[in-house]
């Protein structure tokens, strides 16, 4: 009896000290979707994604975007399902990266038509411990401004190889945005802005000398 009481006390203390956060984090997702049928279908889709180990936040956001945009239930379900597939593709292409930001950026790039092989090339351009979310976001943005994906990839990976920071790569995307809005041809805008960022970077020899060991070149 005494032994039982000890064991029960130990188990209760262990449960009390470890259970709260996981219980909140992994509980079933409940979406604020008025249509019950749509809600059930979308929640099931998200539960399937959770079982595959995919990040849930982008899927929830996609579902709620559909609600705010007053899309039909069927359309919301299709959008969430397609995003789950893209996230899964991105996870394979960007391995070993598993951060939500990188997977989301990879999925966005795939959605806009960037080939999967380019995601691999972006991943290979920086060491694995360094997030490639920003280069992927800029690639997506440049393709959205009607720059051919191959051209955009070459400029971005060149900057990455020369040691450009995420902020400098972001400035490339932002500057090209502004130039295109001002009427400059997208390709020309990319070339001139990439040249500008490149001029701020150390020479290739200096970049290679300062690169950490084990760094992979594109």
């Amino acid at each position: 009896m005494n032994m039982h009481r000890r064991v029960i006390t130990l188990v209760a203390l262990a449960l009390a000290s470890v259970s709260p956060a996981p219980a909140f984090a992994q509980g079933p997702v409940v979406l604020r979707i008025a249509d019950a049928k749509t809600r059930v279908v979308v929640e099931r889709e998200i539960a399937r994604a959770a079982a595959r180990g995919l990040p849930l936040q982008p899927l929830i956001a996609k579902a709620m975007e559909g609600v705010t945009k007053q899309a039909t239930g069927e359309r919301i379900q299709v959008a969430v399902s397609l995003l789950a597939k893209r996230l899964e593709q991105a996870r394979v292409l960007l391995a070993p990266s598993t951060s939500v930001a990188e997977l989301t950026s990879g999925a966005d790039a795939l959605a806009i038509g960037v080939p999967g092989t380019m995601l691999k090339q972006i991943r290979a351009a920086w060491p694995v411990e360094r997030s490639v979310a920003m280069p992927l976001d800029v690639l997506t943005e440049l393709v959205a401004r009607r720059i051919p994906a191959q051209h955009a990839l070459e400029q971005i990976t060149a900057l990455m190889a020369r040691g450009a920071t995420p902020s400098q790569i972001a400035s490339l995307g932002s500057s090209v945005q502004a130039d295109v809005a001002a009427g400059l041809a997208p390709d020309a805008a990319l070339d001139v802005r990439a040249r500008g960022v490149m001029s701020l970077l150390p020479s290739p020899a200096a970049a290679a000398a300062s690169a950490p060991s084990g760094r992979r070149q594109p």
Binding site: K62, E65, G66, T68, K69, A71, R75, V78, A79, L82, L83, A111, I112, M134, D137, V138, E141, A144, R145, T165, P166, S167, A170, S171, G173, S174, Q177, V180, A181
Partner: peptide
């Protein structure tokens, strides 16, 4: 009423067909 930002570049929207706007947020 959902509207894009008239001052910012537009984003496409293949999923729902209602385009929004894009901002590149710089890391610090």
């Amino acid at each position: 009423f959902l509207t894009a930002d008239p001052r910012a570049p537009k984003s496409g929207d293949a999923d729902y067909g209602r385009e929004g706007s894009v901002v590149m947020v710089f890391p610090r």
